[in-house]
Nucleic acid binder design. Sequence first.
DNA 1: TTTTGAGTTGTTCGA
DNA 2: GTCGAACAACTCAAA
Length: 455
Amino acid sequence: MNSIVLFKNNLRINDNPALFHASESENKILPVYIHDDINIKKQLGSASRYWLYNALISLNKSLNFNLSFYRGDTIDILMKIIKKYEISDIYCEQPFLKNDIILFDQLKLKLSQLNVKFNIHNCTLLWSPQYILKKDNTPYKVFTPFYRKGCLEKIKPDLPVGVPNKLNFLPKDDSEIDDLKLLDKFRWYDKMDSQWDISENSAVKILDSFLESSIYNYKKGRDFPASNDTSKLSPYIRFGLISVNKIWYALDRLNFDRNIAHYKSELGWREFSYYLLYHFSFMDTKNLQTKFDDFNWENSSEKFDAWKKGETGYPIVDAAMRELWETGYIHNRMRMVTASFLVKNLLVDWRLGESWFWDCLFDADYASNIAGWQWTAGTGADAAPYFRIFNPILQGEKFDSEGKYTLKYIPQLKDVPLKYLQKPWEFSSNLDYANRIVDLKDSRDNALYQYSLIK
DNA sequence: TTTTGAGTTGTTCGA
DNA sequence: GTCGAACAACTCAAA
């Protein structure tokens, strides 16, 4: 008899519990990737598809070119494969997002009718959301108690299972990755090939080098976009080129210090995002705090476009938006600055910002992206006071005090004295640079007024 | 049920 | 330049 290992969002062979457990049985293995754009609520963005394409090439190589590629409805395709081969078992990652859970419930039913065993393993999260509840059996809505009491004090994450000892593959069908049609016709991504090495090995190398030095400056350094003190592992984590369990236990092997604890808590935030989406699945399109449903978004397409292009006239915002466009990534603090600016100063609905990040970020994660935007907008799971509005001038001066990050992405400001870099209009009105699309004080006051209306 | 303490990341104003 | 208070009261978690 034979097994299918169905890959979804965990495209790796090291610490992949689904693959590992399949390899422990006597069955031969048919590794399968199905690009299912039917049972999906939101199509993958362009950046995600490019990353996925390269991650699949890497995975296929790791599997000695035994990976089969299919496109279409997951259940239809699996039924065909099951008919063709003598399949007794399917191994797959456990789903945590609502659409996937529904799909897997249907699949489970079909498989039980066919007497095919469906083995699902948690490959994605350190803590399964369904078991983390308060004493009254309701889900947490605040990060700190969720993380400390719900996660850390409750149970240790699973130990990594390592690489399968042996893999006996079933001869596969002819199928090509290009059948998946992942890449856009316009080759915008050519410039990305030199910036990102998209492979499982590369993820391990990045982790190792991060743990050798930068981690010890993480707590402070993570705030400065020009420094190199973040791991930049997020896109690798997104498609599971590295497992969070492996990262967690690699951190555990280091001598405990506050930098390591802080990095772990950031992994905790990823858990929290999945957790919220699991328990409050409506928040993918609706405000978690429903009182914001009446909020009067301005949604000016001109302002939204200027933000997307990095032409708001505020250097730190524009630098970050250009970083996104040029690299498929934005530094964490810069995500907050740009998101706050869009939602609060421009009064554009967080869902529009969320969709732009979804399209452009290599680490675009369904749960993290939504939870992050709702947090910034003040509509999410946080007691974040609505009057917390980032001031892009102050943020730029504080966190890019030497202007390195700003000038990297907006070189035409190189002749502006550092003192004026974040407010170049005070230096000269004759610069080759966008005019401010809103006044900071006016737009702030207006946001505060708009927020006061829905209290 | 009631009470108490606390909540990722900020800014502005006035002393 | 530096510091604390105000922003404005709310929801959550847990005793």
